[in-house]
């Protein structure tokens, strides 16, 4: 019964015309440059002659064999994973607490948690560099209670703190969305059936929120692994992550093919995560239907 008058027109012409500008734009500025980058990653690089037009897998071999590169990838994965765990541990309870709040407070604090998304990452990261610096406010507070100052800035700890701060909204949002849709009387029903508050959370609320947690985790992991400003400003010149590595290769070393290789690996990792996520969602949907 959803058929409409417009269906009377030739089927392909109108939608093609409507979507043509965006389609051309996206083919020219997404697919084409990505293809060029893939090709670039198979070109070799000569420090005197520049980019060669041959095809070789040597860049990929370099990235996988050279300790500097694979240790950076390893750090990227490790820090992204730690960030994800922290985001779950903080974000999920926080989303639950938010959803239990009363009317004005709930939206006010939701704004406090997700509002920082509107503030530039550079600004927030700069704030953390002031807090964590050698003479920063965290060390100031430690000194005030008589503890030796510690080196925080330019450590992995600093990167993880910064990432966790940037990523928290991305965890709270999907979990909060799921919790909003839950029928609050279901949890109450569990309580009337004799479940403790904790049991009701664990057996009733948490399983229903699992999909939101999963989707938040994947977003957080993907964004952390490709983040640039935080390792750039909080990791200093020494602690590189994938994104800062690519930046160095492109704009400092000028070895574009190697930079492109690292970028392509980051992209592939991202796509694998997203595909796995879609599969999971589909399976979930099937289970719900059947």
């Amino acid at each position: 019964m959803s058929a409409s008058v417009s269906a009377a027109r030739p089927r392909m012409v109108v939608p093609s015309l409507l979507s043509a500008p965006a389609t051309l734009f996206f083919i020219g500025l997404v697919l084409l440059p990505l293809a060029l980058t893939v090709i670039l990653s198979f070109n070799s690089y000569d420090y005197t002659a520049g980019i060669q037009s041959d095809l070789t897998v040597s860049n990929y071999l370099t990235v996988l064999q050279d300790e500097y590169y694979y240790s950076t990838f390893w750090r990227t994965l490790r820090l992204a994973l730690i960030t994800t765990v922290i985001a779950v541990v903080i974000g999920v309870p926080e989303a639950y607490i938010l959803s239990n709040m009363r009317k004005p407070w709930r939206s006010i604090f939701l704004l406090v948690i997700i509002g920082p998304l509107l503030v530039s990452v550079v600004v927030r990261t700069f704030g953390w560099s002031m807090l964590l610096g050698k003479n920063g406010f965290v060390n100031g507070a430690l000194a005030a209670v008589g503890i030796e100052p510690v080196q925080l800035l330019y450590t992995e700890t600093a990167i993880v703190i910064g990432l966790a701060h940037i990523m928290l909204p991305f965890m709270v949002i999907p979990v909060w969305t799921v919790l909003q849709k839950l029928d609050p009387t279901v949890e109450a029903a569990a309580l009337t059936l004799g479940a403790s508050r904790f049991t009701a959370l664990r057996r009733i609320v948490f399983p229903q929120a699992a999909l939101g947690i999963l989707s938040g985790s994947l977003i957080v992991f993907a964004l952390s692994a490709s983040s640039f400003a935080i390792p750039g400003l909080l990791g200093g010149r020494r602690l590189k992550m994938a994104a800062t590595l690519v930046y160095d290769e492109f704009l400092i070393e000028l070895n574009w093919p190697l930079g492109a290789t690292i970028a392509i690996i980051v992209l592939l990792a991202n796509l694998v995560i997203m595909l796995a996520y879609n599969r999971l969602i589909e399976q979930q949907a099937k289970r719900k239907l059947g």
């Binding site: 997404v30 440059p33 990505l34 060029l36 980058t37 993907a222 490709s226 640039f228 994938a242 994104a243 690519v246 492109f250 930079g259 492109a260 970028a263 392509i264 980051v266 992209l267 991202n270 796509l271 997203m274």
Partner: peptide, 10 residues
């Protein structure tokens, strides 16, 4: 879905 890093390079 495509990291901005990758788009920038491309």
């Amino acid at each position: 879905i495509i990291p901005h890093l990758v788009l920038g390079v491309a």
